[in-house]
Design a binder for these strands. Structure first.
Length: 251
DNA sequence: ATGGAACAAGTAACCAAGGT
DNA sequence: ACCTTGGTTACTTGTTCCAT
C-alpha cells in the first residue's frame, strides 16, 4: 500500500490523495512522471523520491516518522520482521509494579522473556524487528517497557490494534474482540484475563510450581498469536476503507 | 487576473478509553 | 493508579475552482 500512499505529503489528507487516485495517479512513479517537471510540485517530488529510497532500503523508521500515526498500518505488508508483542505485569503501573513476562511472536515462533530468567534478553532481541504490533500498547505495554528498561530501543513503526480496530467500529477489550471473531483458546486458558495473569505470577512466586508459570506463559502466547490474525484482518479492512482498490479497478 | 464560495487541512482544548 | 492516543468540537488557515 505504501507506493500508492500520498497522505504523508505536507498538506495532503485523505481527500487529496483520493483525487490523485481518481485522476489515474496511483503510484509514486505516476506522480513523478506527471509532475516531475513542475516547479510547483518540486517539494512533493523530492519527498516521494525519499520515500522510494526508504522503501528500497527497508527503512521502517522513515515511514514511522512520516505517516500519520493512524495510517501506520499501510506499511505493514512491506516489512516482514514484525514483532507481535504483549506483556504481563504485577499490576497496572503503580511504582512497585514490574514486568513478569514479555511475549514476542514473529509470525512463526513465540519467544517468551520471563522475569528472573531471561527477561533482559528482550532488550537485544527486540532490535531485530522493523515493526511492532500490540493491542493498547501505546498506552500500556510500550511505556511500561520503556520505564523498565531505560534506554531500550523499540521499533519506531507501531500498529496499535486497539485504535485501528476502533476506527473500523470494532471496540471492546481484546478478549471480547476475539470472541467476536470466533478465535478459540486452549481449554485451560479460556476465561482468563489480565488480572488472572497477576494472580498466576503471585501463585508461582509462593509455590515455585512450574506448571503455574507455564500456564501464565501460554496465556501470554495465546494473546500474541491472535494479534497476527487481527492485524491481517485489519489491514484488508483498512485498505478497503481507503477505496483504493475500487477506484483503480474502475479504470 | 481577481474575488469569493466551498471545502479541506491544521490547531487547540477537552474527553473517553483498555490493559495487568 | 497510570498511561497516550484518537475522536469530537470549534475555530483558523489554506486550496481549489468557478464566475466574473
Amino acid at each position: 500500500m505504501l507506493e500508492h500512499t500520498f497522505i504523508h505529503l505536507p498538506n495532503f489528507g485523505p481527500w487529496r490523495e483520493r483525487r490523485l487516485w481518481m485522476n489515474g495517479i496511483t503510484t509514486w512513479d505516476d506522480f513523478l512522471e506527471h509532475y516531475g517537471s513542475s516547479q510547483f510540485h518540486k517539494m512533493f517530488c523530492t519527498k516521494l523520491a525519499s520515500s522510494k529510497n526508504a522503501l528500497h532500503l527497508g527503512d521502517a523508521e522513515y515511514f514511522a516518522n512520516n505517516l500519520p500515526s493512524g495510517e501506520s498500518w499501510r506499511a505493514f505488508p512491506h516489512f516482514n520482521k514484525v514483532a507481535y508483542l504483549d506483556i504481563e505485569t504485577t499490576g497496572l503501573g503503580s511504582a512497585t509494579d514490574y514486568i513478569t513476562v514479555i511475549g514476542v511472536y514473529d509470525g512463526e515462533k513465540v519467544y517468551s522473556y520471563i522475569h528472573g530468567q531471561n527477561l533482559d534478553d528482550f532488550v537485544m532481541d527486540i532490535q531485530k524487528y522493523d515493526a511492532v504490533v500490540t493491542f493498547n500498547g501505546a498506552f500500556f505495554d510500550l511505556p511500561f517497557i520503556r520505564k523498565s528498561f531505560t534506554g531500550v530501543s523499540l521499533p519506531k513503526l507501531h500498529v496499535d490494534l486497539r485504535f485501528a480496530l476502533a476506527s473500523l467500529n470494532v471496540t471492546g477489550g481484546l478478549k471480547k474482540i476475539e470472541t467476536k471473531f470466533g478465535f478459540e483458546r486452549e481449554d485451560d486458558l479460556k476465561g482468563l484475563n489480565g488480572y488472572d495473569a497477576v494472580r498466576m505470577w503471585q501463585s508461582y512466586l509462593k509455590t515455585k510450581d512450574k506448571t503455574v508459570l507455564d500456564r501464565l506463559v501460554r496465556y501470554n502466547a495465546a494473546d500474541i498469536s491472535n494479534l497476527k490474525k487481527l492485524m491481517e484482518w485489519t489491514y484488508t479492512e483498512k485498505r478497503l476503507q481507503t477505496g483504493f482498490d475500487e477506484l483503480v479497478k474502475l479504470k
